[in-house]
Structure formats: structure tokens, C-alpha cells
Amino acid sequence: MSLLEIKNAKLKLDDKDILKGLSLSVSKGEVHAIMGPNGSGKSTLSYMLAGREGYELESGEVFLEGQSLSNMEADERARSGLFLAFQYPVELPGVGGMSFLREAVNSRRKFLGEEELDHLAFVKESRKVASKMFVKDEMLKRAVNVGFSGGEKKRFEILQMAMLKPKVSILDETDSGLDVDALKIVSDGVNAQRNDDNAIVVITHYQRLLDYIVPDFVHILSDGSIIKSGGPELALEVEKNGYAGLINAA
């Protein structure tokens, strides 16, 4: 059974067709890359999966571990193990990173029937994970994403992913705004979490991220549907010839 199954997803925004029958199946242990030019529907796809208000499917269905997501709100989906690393992480003034993370982690643990972590246990756990991610303690004390550099924001996203241990992670343009060094740190953080039990969907415009997070499958998204799928070599083809060649050939 696949971890994530998108079946013929159709979605409109302001009466405009954005997703036009998108299907995708992701199994345990796999990393999928979805590549596409601007306006192909990449961000819409990530919001739709995460259950953002206003991004409901017109038809089609999405399953997470065999369970339909259609009647699940964004927070239920998150607690069930769906994680979205934001392209533009949102600032929460005055909300300390540590308390935010703790609430998030405990919501997930509660859902899984695990014991909630008390303050001390949580601090210990988060420090352990943070040090692996090259995230300084000091960053966890600051307000969520407030005054963070582009690299810090993305690292904090991946730190949250590591703490929440999701089943399926969607990384939306995680490479945007990163220099090479930051890109490497973030990618190492993601790679460290790959295992046989979870899956990762990387949404990106550029091939360069895929040098660091090497996918098992690459899909080309164009005009609201997947027009071509293949292995990592497909990404290189995009790099070489651009999207135009592939789109015209489809």
C-alpha cells in the first residue's frame, strides 16, 4: 500500500483550473521530486495536500496510509503524519520557538497515543536534534521565524520535521533563498531522516537541490498535471534542456 496516493486531483482557484487531474503514488522509503516551471501548480499542490482553507479538491481524492484526507482539517492531517516544509516560513512574533515546537510535538504524540513530553524531556530532545541540524539553542529561544535569515528559516523547518517524525514530508521549494553552504546543511538534515518507513516529496523549480537530496523518482508537473515521470536522470534533462523541450514533447 502506498503512503501517499493522489487520485485524479482537480482543483480550481478563482474559477481557474489549477490542478487538472493529477495522480501520484508514493510508497514507503521513497523520495519523489516534483519539478515544474512557475505557475505549473506546485505550491497549490502542497497547500492542497496540507489542507489549507480554500484549496479543497473539486474532484479526485488523496489518501494518507490508505485513509482519505477529504474530510480532514489541516491540523488533523498534520497530526496524522503529514508535514509541509514551507517555502516561506511564517513569522509568529512573541511565540518562542521552544514552546511552539513543544506544542506541535505533543499534539502529534497525543494523536499517536504516546505520552506527552514534559518541559525538561522536551528541552533535552530538542537540543539533541538541534545540534545535529547545526541549529543553535539560541535560535529556539527566539520567536518563531522572527528575524531569521533565509537559511535559518529553512533549517528550523527541517528541525521541526525531525522532531515531528512525519510519515510523509512535502518540501516546498526548500532550496529557495539558500546559498550553497546552507543548502548542504539543510539537505543533510533531510537525508538523515530518510528511512524505510517514511517518504519525502520534494517540490522544486531547480535541479540543484536534487544533487543533495537524490530522489528515487522525478515527475514533471506542467499546467496542473504530471506530464512525465522517470528516475533522477529526468532532472538532469530539465537542467540541460529546460522545461520547454519536455513540455512541447508531451
Binding site: A50, R52, D75, R79, L84, L92, Q160
Partner: peptide, 8 residues
């Protein structure tokens, strides 16, 4: 949405 996506 950011908070909801983290399970709150």
C-alpha cells in the same frame, strides 16, 4: 495555517 500544519 502555519500553526495548523504543525498539528495545533
Amino acid at each position: 495555517f502555519y500553526c495548523l500544519q504543525r498539528g495545533l
